[in-house]
Computed example of a mutant assay.
Amino acid sequence: MRQILLACTALLALSATAQAHEYQVGSLHIDHPWTRAMPPGAPTGAAYLVVHNRGETADRLLGADTPAADKAEVHEHVHQDGLMKMRQVEGGLAIPAGSAAVLEPGGTHLMLFGLKQPLEDGTRFPLTLHFEKAGDLQVEVAVQKDAPAAASEHQH
């Protein structure tokens, strides 16, 4: 009975780890990179994450790349002339010291152009983030049917 209990505990721990994944480079801590599942043939997608800067120096997310898409760019949603539009963030995204940059649906995000494979629920793909000071960091982006609970809390 004890072995079954230990096995169940280990499976639950692995399950929690699979859902919430974190990365570290320098003073930057990256929480749960994810994207929404997209129908087959969708040409674009978007990746979301939170970058916490636990250091005393500001940094900047310059961009990203992935073998899953032709290109990835930092984009933001803006209200212009009464319409919601999307545009590339020129010069990258500032990550102030002691603060966080939230990439979320309806806000700043990593736009993925020319998807090379379907974004299917339950899969993952590599994404390399390029930071001005901290350098490059490869993360795994979790493809999910719905936004994770933490991301829903950030939405406006």
Rank of each mutant, 00 (worst) to 15 (best):
D136W: 09
Q88S: 10
L11Y: 03
D70T: 15
P40R: 00
H75D: 05
E104S: 12
E76W: 12
L119F: 15
T108G: 03
G98T: 09
G92C: 11
G107V: 00
L83M: 13
P43T: 04
T44L: 07
A46Y: 06
H130E: 13
H109L: 15
G114C: 08
L83W: 14
E132N: 08
L93C: 00
H21W: 14
V78I: 15
H79N: 07
Q138W: 04
T108A: 09
T9Q: 09
A100Y: 10
D31Y: 07
P118D: 02
M38Q: 15
D70V: 14
Q138S: 14
R124F: 10
G98D: 02
H130C: 07
A97G: 06
A18V: 07
A101C: 14
D59C: 12
A142F: 04
H21A: 09
H29G: 02
A18C: 04
A10G: 10
V50C: 03
H21N: 10
R36E: 01
P96M: 03
G91C: 06
V139R: 00
L28N: 09
L115Y: 06
K145H: 12
G55E: 06
T17C: 12
L11F: 13
L28F: 12
L14E: 07
L12M: 13
V141T: 00
L93K: 05
R87A: 01
P67N: 06
P40K: 03
A47E: 04
L62H: 08
K145F: 05
